[in-house]
Design a protein around this nucleic acid. Structure first.
Lengths: 229, 229
DNA sequence: GTCTATAATTCGATAGAC
DNA sequence: GTCTATCGAATTATAGAC
């Protein structure tokens, strides 16, 4: 599995498969694009593809991993320039949607996988998912490097819940049929303000008791994803 | 499609298929249970099943329709006895999970379908989904018949968002591995109190301006599901 | 040994005879 | 309504090519 063990030829073949698969997926949709068609366009036998990808879903998964890499790269710049939590969150989530936009028609496959807790690829599954773990790291940086002064109980929860927030945005985006996903970007702009407001309110000493009750609730039900408690 | 047109024999055959399919689904999981196995256990040819169900997914969908019918029945009693919004919501959602519990292992198929906006069976799809529509009616009754005095802007939104809230609970439940879904029931108990608190706060005249901004936001982004505005 | 090709298998779904 | 026969698609088994 490790990339270091791949031969140059293997890498080229793998990339060839990804290239033609992406074209076919966006052109015909995930279900209509067959492994045979991919094989024909990549000048290989259908069985050969399985030497490089265990299943058809893994091919799609690879696109998401690639998007994540691109996103992580882009976020380095964003997180260097923006200080305020609201702005960091806004730009990070907007960038995610921007990068995913070309893959919109096949994105539902991501949630199709996610919905099955048994599937190890699911970002919600108990088993450690590399994609999810790296994504969570990003949100930890987003929170940790911001100018927001957070109470300790909020601090340990916020990154995880902002990750869930981004999942919700993606789910909305998948079903958003407005031109250029205009409504999704509006939703992001509106809701990050809400997050900022809530975070600011959470720091008011007067409401600390209420906040503590709330964070205790959130801590009890945050997915633990098999981490040590 | 209408039940009135079904012959007694057709009804029996249909029921037979559902019986053996459920057994196989919970025993082996949705994907591992094949149409051929279902056919063998129902003493029919594989092709014959398709006279009664258009696809394999429709068989699962039927279970959810049955659960919904049971749930709707049970809710008549609940909504007659409980007055307070918090209690109505708590009992209705708890009942939903109770009734769905035997189907837990195959429930992810519901979200697998839901995740594809193109799929007409998806409760999020633009096309009118009978299952979703009847479910929404239930939540409208839940809100309308409660003792809560709601501002008009909250009133028109609450039912739709409580329906989404129930969807969120179901998603949590699907991934909840605690014994007897203990954590899910705890989550319900905790969050319905939160809903009640928010609804009460929303009626305080002093915060009306903030509330109006919030409901305007929610109104803009509530799924319109192809309803007339 | 690492890819690739060929052929077989499995499974959902369909067509058409009875 | 049911059956037989088959299709088209994903996946797998196995053998061969480099």
């Amino acid at each position: 599995m490790s990339k270091s063990r791949m031969t140059p030829k293997s890498i080229r073949t793998r990339q060839k498969i990804l290239d033609v698969a992406l074209l076919l997926f966006v052109e015909k949709g995930y279900d209509k694009a067959t492994m045979r068609q991919i094989a024909v366009q990549a000048n290989m036998a259908p069985g050969s593809i399985y030497h490089h990808f265990p299943t058809k879903e893994h091919i799609v998964q690879t696109f998401y991993d690639m998007i994540h890499e691109e996103h992580a790269q882009a976020c380095v710049g964003i997180l260097r320039n923006e200080i305020k939590l609201e702005h960091r969150l806004r730009e990070v989530v907007r960038k995610k949607i921007e990068l995913a936009e070309p893959f919109k028609k096949i994105s539902y496959v991501l949630f199709r996988v996610a919905s099955n807790p048994q599937n190890p690829l699911s970002p919600f599954s108990a088993q450690s998912s590399p994609t999810r773990d790296r994504s969570l790291v990003l949100f930890r940086q987003l929170v940790a490097g911001s100018s927001a002064k957070l109470p300790a109980d909020v601090d340990i929860l916020l990154a995880d819940y902002l990750w869930l927030y981004q999942m919700g945005i993606i789910l909305y985006w998948i079903h958003d049929t407005s031109e250029n996903s205009r409504k999704t970007f509006r939703l992001i702009d509106r809701t990050v303000k809400l997050v900022q407001t809530l975070v600011e309110i959470s720091s008011i000493p007067l409401i600390a008791p209420f906040r503590k009750k709330f964070t205790k609730l959130m801590l009890e039900f945050v997915p633990d994803w098999g981490r040590p408690a």
